[in-house]
Design a protein around this nucleic acid. Structure first.
Lengths: 242, 242, 242, 242
DNA sequence: TATGAATGAGCTTTCATTCAT
DNA sequence: CATGAATGAAAGCTCATTCAT
């Protein structure tokens, strides 16, 4: 459906063959980079699934197939492991986002691509949204404590800013369009649906992950953003009382 | 700003004087209903703040000012306490929602009121969104295990359905408007902003809770929903490649 | 040999019958005071034997015959348990010391009794000296962090001070006698012998705990203190070069 | 103040330049003797500070600036490292002690020098006393398990013995003077003061390491030993009741 | 000789929950 | 209805030690 290739490692059991190193004398690992990645993969899945407090270091170790102590050797403690997972997640989505080349498209097409990218990314990388939600439960403590994460956001913000500006200059976007509000709305429309699908399914008694529904939602979200941008700014509205 | 009165009990330290019941020989509570409510209030705040696995029964007991064992007496275990909190939260929002009397308004005004209600409710009842997020982390296990929660949703769904239908009949809403998609989008736009404000603030380095910003967001969200509904349905769109 | 009765509880397996409470329905404890004391006894022995870092909470729980978690229930953590042990130890020795009634004796007899008391106390309460040594390894962190321990020392200091003053006034003690130096010397002579008996036994290849030796040491120590006090102050000594 | 030169290596960060051995291609050590000594120095400080169970192999490696595994390479395990530290400590003090040449002095001067030596040595080599205390906590297991340590003590014992004998023959020492008791008393008076200064400072609320106080203590200790030796033996003492 | 990676045992502490009154 | 005491399971983390190079 989309143009991005899968992120680092698939959600379950990394293949990551590391094809042609020495014959693996005994089945031992002895490949620090790989070990680190195995741990990060397992941790990402566990934290995404159970949250920081619900996630178990034990489970992560088992899932990663490494000795539990190695986790502490590499990441010092659970909290910092969580931070590392978060950092890598942000790094991955931003890296892909930065590859979108929005500047080559018309403002409207660029925005459509941007929305699609976000929608598809979180559908294909299920771990991402729960991770963010949980980080918010912790008031973004880990993101704030990490000096690299804020820096990762700049390129995306600037790229989106350029698209909006071009749309405004062209006159194809409503003149009160604001990049921050817009980004938040895009993220809301793309992320919430997935992260809250379980309670939504209680309300509507329907499976939101059925592929037709996903496609419908994708179209709806895109249309909502674009129809907003195409609409003229509100004339001073006949406010109802609330 | 809105027409709803404050929910059960304020977030911090319930006043809830219950002034003149029996003289209480020793200052002890001895008012089952009140004790139950104290526990529920404390539990709601704790779970909202820390999630189910991060929340501590101990803390809840302390916050509620009751003996820990009472919690088990009233609610059997932590899981069921969580379920009770959730049920009460749903009951409260739906009760207020049902009082909106959307049928008395024009479709557009009704929808505006509905959006405003959702936006304002979660801003004023901060515990609500984190609670839902956490419940989703647990795949809505408690909502699904509770027979009353699904039943609570009907009135809201029907009321919103009637509004949409009236808008369609009137021709003021686009003809592909779908109540389910629309509800999800409204919830997304209203809820996500608040629940993810901490990571968003890392991205945009700004305080999303400043009152001007909240007002701006409220207007933006409302306008996005309404401009969508006012727009003509997409003509088979000139799809860009993605 | 001495007039003091054994402290709180004997070193091994407390009898502490608590004779006539109800028939002990099931063998359960349900006697918080007793439980607390059992833990303190076990902790005192363990810490005395292994030090703070060598001592195991597990072992303490087993020795005390209580659930491990109870230790945390009563004392919050290992460090504070150690502090409580220390406080009780000081409280006990000072209480007995204060019962010596030194004011009723001649200065020399009073001092002899004081020396004997210290010597006998630490011989009979073996846990005491190792506990102090270990506390010193930790730079008296726990004693300094405890507001009651310093206050416990006053009576002893004043009592010893009065004895010395009387001896000086009478002229039976040398005129440069200083209570602080004297106390330190008494403690040194009484405590060191016991606490360092193992390395001393490597040096002298002899068992210092044999009862004749103990008696000899007791006499030697007493005589050293008293002969010092009886001697005239040093005339400006013909210093040798060091 | 005293005649002994500083021991092996100063307590903090060994300088020990070993200036001009081979050019060291990469700055690496590659000097087994030196590496061993670095480890021993670090271990001595660590064990002295934290005891055997409180001391961390990791810390020792870091402090010594060597890889942790090297410690195992050189010393096999923590226990044996501790033993090596102990042996070197004993070897050092005895070596210096043996250089005192007590036989050249009058008995009283010899004894004064012996006391001063002990006092000064432990003041200047702070690690010594805590090390001994901790070894005693372990019932001198390591000293007993080491065949060299007992042998190291002979010369000192004989030298002290000769001094006492000469004093007795001369009639300048009391006739019941016993070398073992005397040595223990000297060690007590010199060592205890330093090792227990932290709890003593809680009792007396004073800094025992202030240089005036140290000097005063040194004089007091010396005088106590000498006044004892000068005094006539106790006539069968009018025992008070204890 | 030297090193970074890896391990297993065990430690302190936390936590939901139950007992006994 | 209410409470303090007690418990078992398990969590995060530490530590001495060994592997593999």
């Amino acid at each position: 459906m989309v143009d991005q290739s899968p992120p680092e490692t698939p959600r379950n059991k990394p293949a990551r063959a590391k094809p042609d190193t020495k014959p693996e004398t005994s089945g031992r690992a002895r490949d620090p980079e790989r070990t680190r990645a195995l741990i990060l993969d397992a941790a990402r899945d566990e934290f995404s699934d159970k949250g920081l407090s619900g996630g178990r270091v034990n489970t992560i170790a088992e899932q990663a197939g490494v000795n539990k102590q190695l986790i502490y050797y590499y990441f010092k403690d659970k909290e910092r492991l969580y931070g590392a997972v978060l950092e890598r997640a942000y790094r991955d989505i931003r890296k892909r986002e930065n590859a979108l080349d929005l500047d080559a498209l018309s403002p409207e097409d660029a925005l459509r691509r941007f929305v699609h990218f976000n929608f598809d990314y979180i559908v294909e990388n299920r771990y991402f949204v729960p991770l963010l939600n949980d980080e918010n439960l912790h008031k973004a403590r880990h993101a704030k404590g990490n000096e690299k994460i804020p820096a990762l956001q700049g390129t995306m913000k600037r790229a989106l800013g350029r698209v909006i500006r071009r749309g405004l200059e062209e006159g194809s976007f409503r003149r009160d369009a604001d990049p921050v509000e817009l980004y938040i709305s895009i993220a809301s429309l793309c992320f919430f649906f997935l992260s809250n699908r379980h309670t939504l399914s209680v309300i509507f008694d329907t499976d939101l992950l059925e592929s037709d529904r996903i496609a419908a939602r994708r179209a709806h979200v895109t249309e909502m953003i674009l129809s907003y941008l195409r609409s003229p700014p509100e004339s001073p509205p006949a406010r109802e009382n609330s």
